[in-house]
Design a protein around this nucleic acid. Structure first.
Lengths: 234, 234
DNA sequence: GATGGAGCTTGCCCCAGCGCAAACAAGCGG
DNA sequence: CCGCTTGTTTGCGCTGGGGCAAGCTCCATC
């Protein structure tokens, strides 16, 4: 394993306000792990032995229902923590996390959580702030599901994705990991058929350009108009 | 104002594991407030000057969307904290909280949060655990909205309500605060019409008994069957 | 005990979007 | 280069449940 140093994590918002020496100590206790595409980082109901920081790649967090449905909770981008069950008093992971592409993660044993939190107040403050944001996101999602049409929800989802993981290309803004119609459907509570129809329609209008597991947003502004429900019904 | 003492809060799970003397100090710094039915405890976007503990009554937490929809996030029961925005690094409240009946709440200035958290580790642990539960709830809600039919969602909502605030009566289990069809609709992402139709149907089958802002569940077990989607389509 | 308003019920219509099914591409492994 | 798998597209029919509208009932107020 390559030796780890603070340059990996310096500048991440979770570690904001922590002294370099402390960062070294924190990073020194982590294991660095490679996770191949489609492999799990952690699994629902499994004992929460570690918490993780995504260094590189993209991870999809999802929950499975007893009746076989899968719902995508969120995508994790580089620099974000995940599997922080122990910070919230859980002993098992609440969801499945799967690498959307080959990933590199740092892992710390869960017991270290309380040590870190006690030693580095800003670490715990930053994390709980992140938890707060996730709670907000979850509520926002509930509200979307309650009040918006499928078209608006899918538009919102794409906007969220390009904001989080958008990469400028000459064509437009590319979602820079493989994402299928089915994946988008699982994020928005609809079916791959409907997503496919919407993307086709938007492609005709020149709003997006998409292919196999690939979506490029060409006109984010017009997509926003749809997301806000101010779209002219054609 | 009546003098406050620890008997008010002893035994609540948030304060589990805290010494009596400390409890006195904590409670000593609270203001006790009466909130009349339909009056706000705190409001969305407002500066989060305090956090609260509900001593008596029931509070509805809801979010309003720009386009005039209201979505109920949760009901707070006696013994629960609310308005803990500051614990999650927010400076404003994320939602509206309205008294569903006349309520009594304790309020502490937000700045005290960090003091309490630092002085009483179990207080902060207990609270974050509660936050974890809420995050779970929110995700569960997203999953329900994504995968279940309206009928199941409404059944789930009623079950949640009787679990949280059910009161045994000779008729069955009463939800012990006034709740309208509209309220249930806002919890489940549907319309008061549909809720009304469902309750009427269930009443015909002897599952529930309901009236103006009043719902009694007679056969929770059969309601559970519906909630799980194992209902025989009549 | 009349009046008004808030909450509830129900019938009818309609459509967004799901389910099903069939056909089509684009990679990938051999 | 071929065949297979995995992802995508699209047509068609159907239905859950939303929207609208009318009428009803309980309760509070005067």
């Amino acid at each position: 394993m390559a030796s780890l140093d603070r340059s990996l994590v310096a500048g991440l918002s979770v570690f904001e306000g922590i002294a370099s020496a402390d960062l070294d100590r924190i990073v020194g206790q982590a294991r660095s792990i490679r996770v191949a595409k489609d492999q799990p980082v952690f699994e629902q109901e499994q004992e929460a032995h570690s918490f993780f920081l995504l260094l590189d790649g993209h991870v999809r967090v999802m929950k499975s229902t007893p009746d076989g449905h899968e719902v995508t909770v969120r995508y994790i981008s580089p620099g974000e923590l995940m599997g922080i069950a122990s910070a919230l008093g859980r002993t098992t992971y609440p969801a499945n996390a799967v690498a959307a592409v080959d990933c590199v993660v740092l892992a710390w044993p869960s017991q270290l959580w309380s040590t870190f939190a006690a030693s580095f107040p800003s670490f715990s403050a930053n994390t709980y702030k992140a938890v707060g944001v996730r709670l907000q996101d979850a509520h926002a999602r509930v509200i979307e599901m309650s009040t918006e049409q499928v078209e608006q929800r899918v538009a919102h989802a794409l906007l969220k994705l390009i904001k989080q993981s958008g990469k400028k290309t000459e064509e437009g803004i590319l979602i820079d990991f493989p994402i299928s119609r089915q994946d988008v459907a699982e994020m928005t509570g609809t079916t791959l058929h409907t997503v496919s129809r919407l993307l086709s329609a938007w492609e005709d209008q020149g709003l997006v350009k998409s292919g196999r597991q690939r979506i490029v947003v060409i006109e984010p502004h017009r997509l926003l108009v749809i997301a806000e429900g101010r779209a002219a019904k054609s």
